[in-house]
Design a protein around this nucleic acid. Structure first.
Length: 808
RNA sequence: GCUGGUGUGGCGGAAUGGCAGACGCACAGGACUUAAAAUCCUGAGAGGGCAACUUCGUGUGGGUUCAAGUCCCACCACCAGCACCA
């Protein structure tokens, strides 16, 4: 079979016939299958794309043959850094290169033979799409979930530009190597922290890999504890700390406040001011998270101020130290050297006292890290309680005396969405000197991204230099006002695309609720694990938000998530031009896309990925040839031949293969699915050797084999189906259903064990009772010999598997 | 450091607590062929034995069980995420 030729032929015919049309009028058995869309790199599709799109397409085909009305749209995540960096490098305008790259990739994706519903395509950099990105922004703004605050950006003083986190490599600029500094700018944030608890609890109800759920859980970082108010000596200020170890409050020896804390200036005594200012200035050079690091030497400065422990009245000093993060919890922590390793490190340096609070179970000193056991000392009131009991009791006491309260904190931070970059969705906000930040009225959306050529990032968003863009009238008061010069993080664009797809051509609304509620959420979402704490979290947040607006009746976007593994080079290392060998296109033109798909399916586990070895292709075409031969030969058998032949094995092999292929496909376990098909084909060849074949059975098995391989090798199956005289199209056939009755074997081999050691194997009829099986086992010569003169202690019979006789 | 994950022949990889190594590659042998390729069939974890057979085998060491790649404990190696979040 000339694979390259037939593939083109069928791709064209399928496209012309719109064979995979999604039927919007028949949504009872819809199946929404989605692969994470990619950014249009413009290069040829690499093996990773085939791995992602080709194999999950086979899953979609499998679903379609099961009778599902499969919705599998495709689009491009086309705003953002990759396209802009490519443009900066080549000098081609990002719009031109992006649109060109998209057309190249569209064609390539069609060449995979994917059943994508192109009429629903979304392209995030097109106004008809980003109109809704902006609309979403406005809704968030109206609900108070989009707000502005000063926040640091990465600034390269040498390139004189803002750079993205990804471009900061170990603190220096990726391009020029100079040290990146932090610069404060007013930026937009989405208040994802409002949804922290729901994002956490929602994980319980979705079918996602455990690994990903844990990643998100840790990222959200819920911490249950207690806030405690410490007053300054003179009573003028209240310092609130957060702790998850309020049971150690009797061990507090000092308090630490973060250098950025707004209260700090009021707390520094005049004779300590110079030293504190110096320390704060030094700390400000780096942002509070990156300057930290578990193993860093602790530093800090005494402020001159003392505060009072509300429980025991103890007077303790207040330090400022950069190991405390201002933006987490209250930005002030209590120092308990005996029960916190970081505090212990600090105590070693500053010779602050170490007061032990929890005593070990048997009165021994508690070692760091903390122990589960212990009783509270230094307190008559709470003595004898375990630390968990003490946490509750002390918190209640603090609440009673008005010096503390229960508190839950999250590590999750608000989502920073401003980008001082050109190639992104314009922020639909107008800054008016009188009215402040005003959203662009919805009827004026989209705010079009101007087509400019001076888009090199230089601190402010490049749009800031385009006066015809920037200068507008305030939509509220009509005064002169300015647009926001920044663009949106591309993750905003991709946070709702899965909801836009089903109604992608709707120019009146982001989508029609009625329609989306029928088609969404996504039944299976396929994509890499690298988006676990970004895209996958943002999408959940936005979905919950749209749910709260009353636009959709579900609040999780992706019911089931499957991560495909990574395709590695032959050497097991990350694919690169050096070790990757040949491109996907070269393989396709030599072996055909079906052979490529099948080889990828068979040679690695889809979830784990693994090294790619192109030698498999040759053998896969041999396997396809093998199928072609036996199918054609069996279909051509004269009717009525060999009708009397016993056919249990072939029937069994078919039933088993169907059953296993179905469950393997469902689990994305493509390698075992193909293995089961190979087994069936092997049995067919064995059966073929028999003289008196049952022609009717042979023909029906042959047809089933073509159906079984159709999702995995769509062109090949279609061509073969036609060549054996069957009616177009194989892809409208039903996937074979297992005849369970054929799985009942007459006899099965079981292992005979004596003292758990296998000593023989025998065939036994499956209809036998345990007692009868045991009797056969005992009559076996080898078993008999081993039982000679011994007494039987125990007999275990597992029908169909083993008999184990324990003797003494 | 913390949290996850992984560890199985020469290789890619299979195994609801029940015959480890399915399926395939590479390898060896055979059939067909003048020959080669292709195709078809057979063999094969490692060691020992002519053989029947036997010993050892799923990173290491323990444990539970009639039975452990699978469950439990400790450790080692590699990979990933987080990294002073009080």
């Amino acid at each position: 079979m000339d694979y390259a030729k037939i593939e083109q032929k069928w791709n064209q015919k399928w496209e012309k016939d719109n064979l995979y049309k999604f039927d919007e009028n028949n949504l009872d058995k819809k199946y929404y299958l989605l692969e994470m869309f990619s950014y249009p790199s413009g290069l040829n599709l690499h093996l990773g794309h085939w791995w992602n799109f080709g194999l999950s397409d086979s899953f979609g085909r499998f679903k379609r043959m099961q009778g599902y009305n499969v919705f599998q749209p495709m689009g491009f995540d086309s705003f953002g850094l990759p396209a802009e960096n490519f443009a900066l490098k080549t000098g081609i305008h990002p719009e031109d290169s992006t649109l060109h790259n998209i057309s190249v990739m569209e064609q390539q994706l069609k060449n995979i033979g994917g059943t994508f519903n192109w009429e629903y395509e979304v392209i995030t950099c097109k106004p008809e799409y980003y109109k809704w990105t902006q609309w979403l922004f406005v809704q968030l703004f109206k609900k108070g979930l989009a707000y502005q605050k000063q926040a640091p950006v990465n600034w390269c003083p040498s390139c004189n530009t803002v750079i993205a986190n990804e471009q900061v490599v170990e603190g220096v600029c990726e391009r020029c190597g100079s040290e990146v500094v932090r610069k404060n700018m007013k930026q937009w944030f989405f208040k994802i922290t409002d949804y922290a608890e729901r994002l956490l609890s929602g994980l319980d109800n979705i079918d996602w890999p455990q690994k990903t759920k844990i990643l998100q859980k840790n990222w959200i970082g819920k911490s249950i504890g207690c806030e405690v108010d410490f007053k300054t000596e003179d009573g003028s200020q209240t310092l609130t700390v957060f702790t998850s170890r309020v049971d150690t409050i009797y061990g507090v020896s000092w308090l630490v406040i973060a250098p950025e804390h707004p209260l700090l200036p009021k707390l520094v005594k005049p004779n300590h001011k110079a030293e504190v200012d110096r320390y704060v200035a030094e700390a400000a050079k780096k942002d509070e998270i990156t300057r930290s690091g578990t193993n860093n030497q602790k530093t800090g400065v005494f402020t001159g101020t003392y505060v009072i422990n509300p429980l025991n009245g103890a007077k303790v000093p207040l330090y400022v130290a950069d190991y405390v993060i201002a933006s987490y919890a209250t930005g002030i922590v209590m120092g308990v050297a005996a029960h916190d390793e970081r505090d212990f490190d600090f105590a070693k340096v500053y010779k602050t006292p170490v007061v032990q609070v929890i005593e070990g179970k048997n009165g021994e000193k508690v070692k760091l890290p903390y122990t589960e056991y212990g009783r509270l000392i230094n307190s008559d009131e709470f003595d004898g309680l375990t630390s968990e009991q003490a946490k509750i009791a002390i918190c209640e006491k603090l609440e009673k005396i008005g010096a503390g309260r229960r508190k839950i904190n999250y590590k999750l931070r608000d989502w920073s969405v401003s980008r001082q970059r050109y190639w992104g969705c314009p922020i639909p906000i107008i800054h008016c000197p009188h009215c402040g930040a005003v959203p662009v009225p919805e009827e004026n959306l989209p705010v079009l991204l101007p087509h400019i050529y001076d888009y090199k990032p230089e601190g402010e968003g490049p749009l800031g230099k385009v006066s015809e863009y920037m200068n507008v009238k305030c939509p509220v008061c009509g005064m002169d006002a300015r647009r926001d010069p920044d663009t949106l993080d591309a993750f905003v664009c991709s946070s709702f695309y899965q909801l836009r797809y089903p109604d992608a051509r709707n120019d009146k609304q982001i989508f029609s609720s009625q329609k989306i509620n029928k088609i969404c959420p996504v039944d299976t979402y396929v994509g890499g694990v690298e988006h676990a704490t970004a895209h996958l979290l943002y999408s959940r947040f936005i979905t919950m938000f749209l749910h709260d607006l009353g636009l959709i009746d579900f609040d999780e976007p992706f019911k089931r998530l499957v991560h495909q593994g990574m395709v590695l080079g032959k050497d097991g290392k990350k694919m690169s031009k050096r070790n990757g060998g040949r491109t996907a296109d070269e393989y396709v033109s030599e072996f055909g896309s079906d052979a490529l798909r099948l080889t990828m399916m068979f040679s690695m586990n889809y979830i784990d990925g693994g090294p790619w070895n192109d030698e498999g292709l040759k053998h896969m075409t041999a396997f396809m040839d093998r199928i072609e031969r036996i199918v054609k030969s069996w279909v051509a058998l004269p009717n009525g031949s060999g009708v009397d032949k016993a056919d249990g094995e072939l029937e069994y092999a078919r039933a088993y293969c169907i059953k296993e292929m179905r469950s393997s496909f469902e689990e994305f376990s493509f390698n075992t699915a193909i293995a089961r098909l190979m087994e069936l084909v092997n049995v067919m060849y064995k059966y073929d050797k028999l003289e008196n074949k049952n022609a009717a059975l042979c023909k029906s098995v042959a047809l089933d084999v073509v159906r079984l391989i159709a999702p995995a090798a769509p062109h090949f199956a279609e061509e073969l189906w036609q060549q054996i005289g069957q009616q177009y199209s194989i892809h409208n056939q039903k996937y074979p259903v297992c005849d369970e009755s054929k799985l009942k074997k007459q006899a099965v081999e079981i292992a005979l064990q004596v003292n758990s050691k296998i000593v023989a194997r025998v065939d036994v009829e499956t209809s036998l009772s345990n007692a009868e099986i045991l009797k056969i086992a005992k009559s076996n010569d080898r078993v008999k010999a081993l039982l000679e003169g011994k007494s039987i202690v125990k007999e275990i019979v597992v029908p169909g598997r083993i008999v184990n006789i324990i003797v003494k």
